[in-house]
Simulated assay, not measured.
Amino acid sequence: MPRLPSGRRAGLSLVATTSALVLALAAATPASAAYGTVSVSLGEPLLTAPRVTIKDPVDNHCYTVQELFPDAPAGSTFSFVGNHSTRPINVYEGDACSGAPTATSPMGYGMSLGGAPIRSIKILGPSAPSTPTTPTTPPAA
């Protein structure tokens, strides 16, 4: 069997090492963790509004205007929210993710919302498995 030139052997070794590293990192990352980014802008006008990017947002965490923009005046709102994470998000007009979400369904990857008075956003975690409900009182005898 002919031998490969030394340069080609080194290239194949690099590919194998890189592949092993990628697989090791993928195995170390929990499958349920959110990754990607969520971008939010504070107030108007949108082109000059302060912007924050949340990298790898925390599942089930509620992000508020005051948390992301501590110096914002009371009553400030997000003028824009863009989701580029692996988790859907809900947006709320209320502080601390209170009340019903603004949109009828969560914002998925690549979706954005602007023009609504948004005061908080929640990164939705993985869905919990549904469990059947059982009665808590014994049946009548």
Rank of each mutant, 00 (worst) to 15 (best):
C97D: 00
I123W: 12
T77S: 06
L42A: 03
R87W: 09
T133V: 14
I123D: 10
A116R: 07
P2N: 12
G11I: 04
G43N: 03
G11N: 13
Q66T: 12
R51T: 15
T53L: 04
A103H: 06
P70G: 13
V38T: 08
N60S: 12
T102A: 11
P88K: 01
A141V: 15
M1T: 12
G99V: 10
F78S: 14
I123C: 13
L42C: 11
T133S: 14
E93V: 05
P106S: 09
R3L: 14
I118A: 02
S6I: 15
C62P: 14
P132L: 14
R87V: 11
R8Y: 14
N90I: 05
T136M: 11
A116I: 06
A116M: 00
D71R: 13
S39Y: 01
A31K: 03
K55D: 12
A31T: 08
A141R: 11
S6H: 13
N90C: 10
V65S: 03
D95W: 02
L25F: 14
A96V: 14
T37A: 10
S13N: 09
T133G: 11
A49M: 01
T133P: 02
L68R: 02
S130N: 09
T48W: 00
L4I: 15
L124R: 04
A24R: 03
T17Q: 05
C97Q: 07
T53A: 10
E93S: 14
P132H: 09
E67S: 15
A128D: 08
V81K: 08
P5Y: 05
P73M: 06
S127F: 10
L23E: 12
L46F: 01
L124D: 06
N60T: 06
P129T: 11
H61Q: 13
S79L: 03
A20Q: 07
A103V: 13
S98A: 15
G75W: 03
C97Y: 03
P50C: 03
I123L: 09
P88N: 04
V81I: 09
Y63V: 14
G115P: 01
G7T: 08
S120R: 12
P45L: 02
A16R: 00
A24D: 01
Y35V: 10
R9V: 15
S13I: 06
V81M: 07
A49Y: 00
A34Y: 07
P5T: 04
P117G: 09
V58H: 13
P139V: 14
P126F: 10
P2V: 04
S76L: 01
G75R: 06
G75F: 00
V58Q: 15
S79H: 01
Y92R: 05
L47P: 05
D59I: 10
L25S: 09
L42V: 03
P57E: 14
L47E: 15
Y35E: 15
T136N: 13
G115Y: 00
N90F: 09
Y109C: 06
S32R: 07
G36D: 01
G7Q: 05
F78W: 01
P45T: 04
P45F: 04
S13Y: 05
T102Q: 07
N83K: 07
G99R: 05
K55Q: 12
I118Q: 02
G75L: 09
P30T: 06
G82V: 03
R119Y: 00
L47K: 02
D71F: 07
V52W: 01
P126M: 08
G99L: 07
F80G: 03
P70M: 02
L12Y: 07
T104E: 00
